[in-house]
Write a protein that binds this DNA or RNA. Structure first.
Length: 555
RNA sequence: GGCCCCAUAGCCUAGUUGGAUAAGGCGCCAGCCUUCUAAGCUGGAGAUCCAGGGUUCGAGUCCCUGUAGGGUCACCA
């Protein structure tokens, strides 16, 4: 697969007789201004003494270079798009590197909410994206122990009107979440109830049989619901870590570092790493009584991941509210003498989702849980389908509505730059027209339908594309050729939204062409177009696969 | 208060190592279905790119200051 940026930069470099360094040859962006060209370079602005005519004559000798012109101080290059389209195929050169992406990582005391949905879809798409180039291990860390779990358990025993989700006629993870809300309401009345939850945690840690039975039961309820959502979104994990199995590990690492003098035992704070003299440079890593805190486990897990799975990189998809925490975690690892672990860790931070009413607060039940989101959007999709395909029963349309809703959610979540916060308003956020999941799905269905209609004409097939028939399709070809560049940039920058924007742009131009040009005409033209739009379809398929969207052949 | 993130049309966003006329969508206005799928397409109005300074041939993009918003400052996870 040609990455044009590299390919052309190299040609320019060669054609200038290597008078300037390769890395100063830059592509200029502003793609919308390059409709007639494929590539622009500003080298002649910063290197006025270069001989353009000489450059041009060398450059045009290369295969696939159609023209080289000087416009407004830029060197614009147009390619023989047909030549490159025939060379074009999906797939990027693999690199022998192993990357773990940990994402989703839910607590088992409450159901997944919109914030987890962002995490999960983002982590999944990032994994898909990186697996184009690297070997990727998908990991999920289940936060299945701790005081918050005990709160739900206690409330279940004391306040729940129902014995089970079945009895309450509610989804099992929502049921657990309801218990959590019950606890927090009770705590407002009686703050001392927290002591009972703490007592329950001690019983859990002492492996009290009755407590363990209840804990197992409620965790199963929570996990069952979460797995259902993973399943619906088409998300799999290769590795599951359970906090309950590792929460008290990591002490040895701390004690070892303590013996080496890297960790201090502060009589006030406990076992502490001190990067500097000020209190903000301290990080407690173990309680003074020797019991573990969260970071103790994280230190252990960081090491475990990298050593057991022989990783070159360990990515954590975790919200931006934990930026400082991850900075500290990495610093601690460096400081206690395992920088080789720290070096491989990366916090993939993403922004918060808030509701029009304000911040998400799951303890008050002020959340959009994943089911509410999914159900609402499916219902909406079904209504639209019923209107458009009134000849079918609503049972028949349900499957299609599901897929459209799925695409709408995924597009909506993935189109944003991951690091940005956004406000989520279920009524207005998930659009079915314009820049949306349904829009790219619809464009794809049109391409499929077009190809099918073309086949029905029984045209004489060609081995390769011979020409692009219209100005519009020449432009489409230009956009298609950018795909490898976009893909490699997206991998490089770990930015899924590059591709979401790209595919929207491609869909946009395709629809323009479709509306303005009659595409099924003479045999010879159909033969060219069939190959051309088949390639376009493969780009859609590739991006859909990364986004985790299942395409529809018709809608 | 310290540290971190962010600021682009009425609204939501893109703007990929600084480059040509700041791009798309929503909403608004005017059009396009007897012809390959109208969840579509065409045209129009709408932007002192938060403010001020700096670096540069050139700044939405880099640097400084300020302002607004968000995050975070636990022996919570």
């Amino acid at each position: 697969m040609f990455i044009l940026k590299e390919y052309i930069s190299n040609l320019i470099y060669e054609s200038l007789n290597k008078k300037i360094p390769l890395d100063t040859i830059q592509r200029t962006t502003s793609d919308s201004k390059l409709i007639n060209y494929d590539y622009a370079s500003s080298i002649f602005i910063s290197n006025k003494n270069l001989d353009f005519q000489d450059f041009k004559s060398r450059m045009t000798k290369n295969k696939g270079i159609a023209c080289v012109e000087q416009v407004n101080d830029f060197v614009n290059i147009c390619l023989d798009r047909v030549f490159f389209l025939n060379e074009f195929n999906i797939g990027i050169k693999k690199e022998k590197k192993k990357v773990m992406v940990e994402f989703s990582s839910p607590n088992t005391n409450k159901p997944l909410h919109i914030g987890h949905v962002r995490n999960t879809l983002l982590g999944n798409a990032l994994s898909n994206l990186l697996s184009k180039k690297y070997e990727v291990v998908r990991a999920n860390l289940i936060n299945d122990r701790g005081i918050h779990i005990c709160k739900s358990m206690l409330a279940y025993m004391k306040f729940s009107k129902f014995k089970s989700p079945e009895e309450a006629k509610t989804k099992s993870d929502l049921f657990v979440g309801d218990c959590y809300v019950l606890f927090n309401n009770a705590e407002k009345e009686n703050p001392k109830i927290i002591e009972e939850a703490e007592a329950l945690l001690l019983k859990w840690e002492a492996k009290d049989p009755d407590t363990l039975v209840l804990w197992t039961k409620m965790n199963d309820w929570a996990l069952k619901g979460m797995k259902k959502i993973y399943n619906e979104f088409g998300i799999d994990f290769d590795v599951w870590f359970f906090e309950s199995e590792i929460y008290d590990k990591g002490k040895d690492i701390i004690f070892d570092a303590y013996n080496k003098g890297k960790v201090e035992l502060d009589t006030e704070l406990g076992y502490t790493v001190k990067f500097g003299d000020k209190p903000e440079d301290y990080k407690v890593v173990l309680r003074k009584n020797g019991t573990c805190i969260y970071i103790t486990q994280d230190i252990y897990l960081a090491k475990l991941k990298i050593e057991k799975y022989k990783l070159d990189k360990s990515i954590y998809v975790v919200g931006s509210e934990q930026n400082d925490y991850f900075d500290k975690l990495i610093k601690v690892l460096e400081h206690i003498g395992i920088p080789e672990i720290a070096d491989k860790m990366e916090h993939y931070s993403y922004g918060m989702i808030s509701l029009p009413s304000g911040k998400l607060k799951s303890r008050e039940g002020n959340v959009v849980d994943a089911y509410t989101l999914i159900d609402a959007i499916r219902q909406e999709a079904l209504e639209i389908l019923k209107e458009k395909q009134s000849n079918k029963s609503s049972e028949d349309l349900k499957g299609e509505a599901k897929q459209i809703a799925d695409a709408a959610i995924k597009y909506f979540i993935l189109k944003y730059d991951a690091k940005k916060d956004f406000v989520f308003d279920i009524k207005t956020s998930l659009s079915f027209d314009g820049n949306s999941g349904p829009y790219i799905l619809y464009s794809y269905a049109r391409i499929c339908s077009l190809l099918k209609k073309m086949q029905e004409t029984k045209f004489k097939p060609l081995k390769s594309i011979e020409k692009l028939e219209t100005k519009e399709e020449l432009n489409l070809g230009r956009i298609m050729l950018k795909y490898p560049d976009r893909l490699s940039e997206a991998i490089e920058k770990e930015s899924v939204h590059f591709l979401v924007n790209y595919i929207t742009d491609l869909a946009n131009h395709f629809n323009t062409t479709y509306a303005n040009i009659k595409l099924i005409t003479k045999d010879k033209e159909i033969a060219n177009r069939f190959l051309f739009y088949t390639k376009m379809k493969s780009i859609f398929n590739d991006v859909f696969a990364i986004m985790g969207i299942k395409p529809l052949e018709r809608m």
